[in-house]
């Protein structure tokens, strides 16, 4: 199954809208990895890929925050881009999403968070020019036009991040057919890499929770889940 251009377009529009939601408008957390990636998977017909990629990235970026003028890594671009690439890869490989595909997409694109921060920074002068223009218009008495400059700041964000997300979908679609040529041992290793990376991401999340007794809370719940899992397994085998 090949990736269709309409899906690339849909991925781009969703990526662009979320980039706007992340900072410019509302900030209702639709742009957080778990939500952003899951919906991206849904739009591209592979919810599982979006969901599990989103879950891992949500944990990995759990502690990131936009404090004051400091810019954090762009967790939205990495989520939409990686989920789009994973879903497109699975589709063009002619199979559903697998942990090996999710791991490959994450390893290849997790650095998009840093690229997103660079893009965010490079768009700031444009917003600065809008603010100067608004001040000049307010001085001239054109108040309606001055305050409306605020809305123009969203367009470049939508376009640039939308284009980057669409490019990720295209890249995923291009890599998909090559997966069959990879050695089975590598694919087996990549399949194991997903839970290993997810465990690391969850540990980073526990550390970045900033809770006073984080190791205690995390350790107790992890022990409970392990005990429940072992008990269920023993009951199944007995």
């Amino acid at each position: 199954m090949n990736l269709e251009w309409t899906q690339v377009l849909v991925a781009g529009i969703w990526g662009g809208l979320l980039a706007v939601e992340r900072r410019a408008f509302l900030q209702a957390m639709i742009s957080r990895p778990l939500v952003a990636a899951t919906v991206m998977g849904l739009l591209l017909g592979d919810v599982a890929s979006g969901l599990y990629v989103g879950m891992l990235l949500e944990l990995f970026h759990l502690g990131s925050a936009n404090l004051g003028a400091a810019l954090p890594e762009n967790e939205t671009l990495v989520s939409t881009g990686t989920a789009a690439a994973a879903a497109a890869m699975a589709r063009s490989a002619g199979a559903g999403g697998t942990p090996a595909i999710w791991a490959l997409a994450i390893l290849g694109l997790v650095g998009l968070g840093r690229l997103g921060r660079l893009v965010d920074r490079s768009l700031e002068p444009y917003s600065g020019r809008l603010a100067h223009k608004a001040l000049a218009e307010a001085e001239q008495g054109d108040l309606e036009r001055a305050v409306r400059q605020n809305l123009w700041g969203m367009w470049p964000v939508f376009l640039v991040f939308g284009a980057l997300t669409a490019a990720c979908a295209i890249a995923g679609g291009a890599v998909g057919p090559l997966l069959g040529k990879l050695p089975p041992s590598l694919m087996r290793g990549l399949a194991g890499a997903f839970p290993a990376m997810a465990s690391v991401a969850a540990a980073i999340a526990a550390r970045n929770s900033h809770a006073r007794r984080a190791p205690l809370f995390a350790g107790v719940t992890a022990a409970c889940v392990i005990a429940a899992g072992v008990a269920l397994e023993l009951r199944r085998t007995m």
Binding site: L62, G192, A202, A203, S209, T221, I226
Partner: peptide, 28 residues
């Protein structure tokens, strides 16, 4: 906020254990 941060740490611990056990046993 302090109570919410404890929820975050506890949930992350549960996720770590589940992900390791579920996908580990499935893929291994």
């Amino acid at each position: 906020g302090a109570r919410l941060r404890a929820v975050a740490a506890a949930s992350a611990g549960a996720s770590a254990a589940y992900l390791a056990m579920h996908f580990g046993s499935q893929q291994g």
